[in-house]
């Protein structure tokens, strides 16, 4: 499998270096780490609650691309599909803390949850106030008998809404409660036509025939709940909307945010065709959509596929989603 790299072991440090050198006006590298932080003067001088996220690499622009004014204060890049280590997370917490505490936004995977928990313990020894919320928006599977639901593309809505609220002066407790509420109202399912090829492995993570697709995939090449014959975009959209809406307690006054997310090797052309079908399907069901975002937002290396996220908007979330953000990728 061809990749534009030098050596597999150098991918993450070279990616972080390239990203920081490309956007020096927005972010800087935290010394001796694969973590970056926002470097705008307002953040450096301010006292807002810090927001820190991170995870295994391969999901770019998550999380590094969402560091900046109005979103994350710092983010850590782990090895590919591998959680960053507590020492690195701890460095990012220290960077992000300006006295008002730090909120950790963690995707629900065993490694991430444990490494962030250890970093939280280290920071608490230093009397830094830390709270953590765990994103588990993937409703492809039930939470029973597993690690629990996975954190996937809905993570960016948590980061954006909490980021805007932090910028507006919300406290750590308020942000933790807000973030948890966003998680509770955000649901995602992904599908793939082709699995990702992890660098250093010369074949896709799982095999699909030329006429097959997989429903319910994760962002680390986890297989889903069903392998089906390839279907038109409108059929896929209807299935996903149906299954995701089944996880909400729907109200007549509902307003939704929609995120159509490319998983890495999906042309934007296909993503907009799919978004068109999703929005038409929701309109047919009289579901009001007031915010839409389409693009390669939370990827799975070079997986060909999409995920659909619906967020049942509450309170002032719509305003927070539309608040300005100066990041590489929002």
């Amino acid at each position: 499998m061809k990749k534009i790299i030098n050596a597999v072991a150098d991918i993450v440090p070279e990616m972080v270096s390239g990203l920081v050198k490309s956007y020096p006006q927005l972010v800087e590298q935290i010394p001796n780490t694969q973590a970056i932080g926002r470097r705008d003067a307002a953040f450096k001088a301010g006292h807002q609650v810090g927001l820190v996220s991170g995870g295994g690499s391969g999901h770019e622009p998550l999380h590094l691309g969402y560091v900046g004014a109005g979103m994350l204060s710092a983010a850590i890049a782990g090895q590919i599909n591998t959680s960053p280590t507590p020492d690195q997370i701890y460095a990012a917490i220290r960077y992000a803390d300006h006295g008002a505490g730090v909120l950790l936004i963690v995707k629900n995977y065993a490694g991430d949850v444990m490494n962030f928990a250890m970093a939280q313990e280290l920071a608490e020894y230093d009397d830094i106030q830390v709270k953590a919320i765990t994103v588990d928006d993937d409703v492809a599977f039930d939470a029973t008998d597993t690690q629990g639901r996975r954190g996937v593309a809905g993570t960016i809505l948590v980061e954006k809404i909490c980021g805007a609220a932090a910028e507006a002066g919300a406290t750590l407790d308020e942000l933790a409660a807000l973030g948890q509420a966003v998680i509770d109202h955000t649901k995602t399912i992904g599908i793939a036509l082709t699995a990702a090829t992890v660098p250093g492995v010369d074949h896709p993570g799982f095999e699909l025939q030329a006429d097959e697709m997989e429903y319910g995939v994760g962002i680390h090449n986890e297989r889903g709940y069903a392998t089906e014959k390839m279907a038109p975009s409108a059929t896929i959209a209807a299935h996903l909307v149906d299954k995701i809406l089944g996880n909400f307690d729907l109200q007549a006054t509902d307003e939704f945010a929609v995120v159509v997310n490319g998983l890495g090797a999906t042309p934007l052309m296909e993503q907009y065709v799919f978004a068109n079908d999703v929005l038409a399907d929701l309109a047919k069901r009289d579901i009001k959509v007031t915010f839409t975002k389409v693009g390669n937002l939370v990827t799975a290396i070079d997986m060909h596929g999409v995920s659909l996220t619906l967020c049942q908007l509450q309170d002032n979330w719509h305003t927070l989603l539309n608040a300005p953000a100066a990041t590489i990728a929002w």
């Binding site: 591998t82 280590t85 507590p86 690195q88 995977y109 490694g111 444990m114 490494n115 250890m118």
Partner: peptide, 14 residues
């Protein structure tokens, strides 16, 4: 803890 990463790092490390 600092070199293994993933889930095994914090588990063995703890």
């Amino acid at each position: 803890i600092s070199k293994v990463g993933g889930a095994a790092g914090p588990l063995y490390g703890s």
